[in-house]
Amino acid sequence: MARIVSALLIGLVFGAGIALSGMANPAKILNFFDFAGAWDPSLAFVMAGALAVTAPGYALILKRRAPALDTGFHLPSGKGIDLPLIAGSAVFGIGWGISGFCPGGAIPALGLLETDAVTFVAAMVAGILVARYLRNATRARTATGAA
């Protein structure tokens, strides 16, 4: 129960941050990346604010043995920089540049009850499921040795 309530509260803080910062507003995102047009530098301040808190915060917390409600920290395995990482990130940027929505901005934007946010999130979920299916199919084929 404590895990559910705390995650809900932490999600509220995240959503409030996204809403205040402008990350839930596609026009603001697109203008940040439009250096040759109506440039709005606001999102650099979002990144600066987030990193100014997260970097020292993580440094303090990760010195501890475990988080408050789990037996250990779940950090991404230290895989190297590989093709899926770079190609996937490049593709993500193309979608972000077309739509003005990233996942962290789009989910809180659902709370604004805007049709475009719902449309984007539905398409994004479909994209995640398609990619997951393709990746599993590729792995299964590699595992059985059939090319």
Partner: peptide, 27 residues
């Protein structure tokens, strides 16, 4: 809370699909 989505719906759908695929492979 300011919200302005200037992109036509078909491109929004395409953008969503592309974002979903990209973030999955890009972890």
């Amino acid at each position: 809370i300011p919200f302005d989505s200037p992109v036509p719906t078909p491109w929004l759908v395409a953008g969503g699909l592309i974002v979903g695929i990209g973030v999955t492979y890009g972890s």
